[in-house]
Structure formats: structure tokens, C-alpha cells
Simulated scan of single mutants.
Amino acid sequence: MKLEHLERAFESIGARLRVEAPVRGRNATSGYSLDIGHDRHGQFFALRGDEASLAEVEFSLLNKQEDNRHLLLLVKNEASKRKDRFLCGHDEREWFVAAVPGTASTVVQAKEALKPAPVREAQARKSLNSRQANTRHNAAFRRQGEWFFVPVEKQMVVDPKLILRHEPISRGGGSKPHLVEQLYRTGGEFVYVHQQYPRGLTQKQYENLLLRHPAAKSWPWRQMRRNPGVYARGAVRHPDHATIVLHDWCRVLMNEEHLAPSRRNLVFLD
């Protein structure tokens, strides 16, 4: 698909696409990036890369939903044989772009591919149809941006002393956190987190680092748990989304975007 045809596809869902030169230090390792830009007219989708990099890839429109302002984009790189998929659309107040794992060929399939297995299982238990399953508030879950909140069906007993108040949750990478009124974590692996090690170091990895670089001990580390069970209750706030209120404990799950190799081609996160 020629870039001018791609621009018209975005126009059909009420969005703007601009092709821009790469921003130093921000372009993806594979030569191009998709971003959300801002100018005096508002938000736009920014396709960034130099002429040679963009010539290496082919863009195809797989599917679009004009009424819901969503489209699914395929980016093929013949040299690497990679086929990347991106869901582009509008969610509540903002435009977004999400890397899609798997082989989705429609917007509906892309949305399902982004849901973690426990969310799809909850949908099946509640016998939701396709329309119901793609709302932000239904019998199976509440959604705010990339986070899903699935009600706990059995009564949870939580020690009040372990409840964190007004706790941020974030997927990292510079994304704006969602603020949860009450959060409870259980299980998981204890790790040391620093901006140079955003996924965390285990106790052994941390000790090995200090042996190599003793000065690292004075860095501002955060002690956290990786992959714990996370549960939320109360208000969940984010500047780009309407506040939701969870009246009972819900399991907190992030979407599956991190499983898509094309995640590296995204710059804008929230």
C-alpha cells in the first residue's frame, strides 16, 4: 500500500497520519516506529523513519471499523520475513496504537488477541457475545486502557495491613501510571528494580552486580515483586481515561501487547 493510500485509510476513521523523519534516540531498532504525535490541531499518528528504512517495509490495511474508529495495519519486512500487526484507533479520549500478537486479520480478532487468557475465560463463563465482549464494562470485566479488572468470584480474605493505598500500576517504559485506591499483591518473585533494570534483578543477580560494580549499591533501587497476583478495589484513575470504581476485589491483568515482537516499533505508550 502506498503511503498516500495509507493516509486516506486513517482519514476514513477520523485520524491523521503523518510521515516524519526519525527522532534521534527514539526510533525503533528495525528502522521505523509508530508514535502518537501532537500539534496545534491535536493528536495524529506519526510514522517515523528515513526513506531507506521505510522502503524496506510494506504497509497493508487488513481491516477497519469506521464507526468505531479502529483499523488493523500489517507491516511486512521481506528481508527479515517479519509480519507485524498494529491496532490503531480511538479509546475514550485519546488515539492509541497497540502491537498485536499472533495472526489477527480483523479488528475484532486483534482485540481478542490482546486479552489475556483469564479475561477470555471470564467472557466464556458469562456467555458474552462479540459485541458485549468488546465493551469496557460488562459482566466479565472492567477495562481501563491496557488494564483489565476481572471480578473475583470467590470471597477473598485480605489482611488490611497489606492493602496498599493509592498505588500506581504501570507497564513501564515511561507510560503514565494508573492510580488504584486499594491494591493487594500476593506471591511473585522478589526483585530489585532500577531505571537501568526495569524488569528487575533477582537477589542473586543483584549481588553479582554489586560484586562487579560496588557503587551500584547507592543507586535508588525499588524492592518489588515480579509477576505477583494483583488485586484491586475502589477507584482507578488515569488522566486519559474515565475513572472506574471497583466495588469488590478484582484480579488485575495487563493486555498481551508485550508478547508481540512489533512492540519494539512503538514509541508512544499511553
Rank of each mutant, 00 (worst) to 15 (best):
H5F: 13
R8C: 02
Y32W: 13
S33F: 13
L34V: 12
R48K: 14
V57Q: 07
K64C: 03
Q65I: 08
Q65F: 04
E78T: 08
A79V: 12
R85K: 03
F86K: 03
D91H: 07
D91R: 04
W95M: 09
A99S: 12
K111V: 08
E112V: 10
L114A: 09
K115C: 13
E121T: 06
S127A: 14
S130K: 11
R131H: 08
N134S: 04
H137A: 10
A140S: 04
R143A: 08
Q144S: 04
E146P: 14
F149A: 05
E153G: 02
V158Y: 05
D159K: 06
P160G: 05
I163L: 01
S175C: 08
S175Q: 08
S175E: 11
P177L: 09
L179H: 09
V180N: 01
E181N: 04
R185W: 14
V191P: 07
H194L: 12
R199T: 09
R199F: 08
Q203G: 15
K204E: 10
L211P: 02
H213G: 15
P214Q: 03
A216T: 08
K217M: 11
S218Y: 14
P220I: 06
W221D: 00
W221P: 00
W221K: 00
R226P: 02
N227C: 13
G229H: 12
V230D: 12
R233D: 10
D240W: 07
H247Q: 14
R251K: 11
M254V: 13
E257W: 00
A260T: 01
L269D: 01
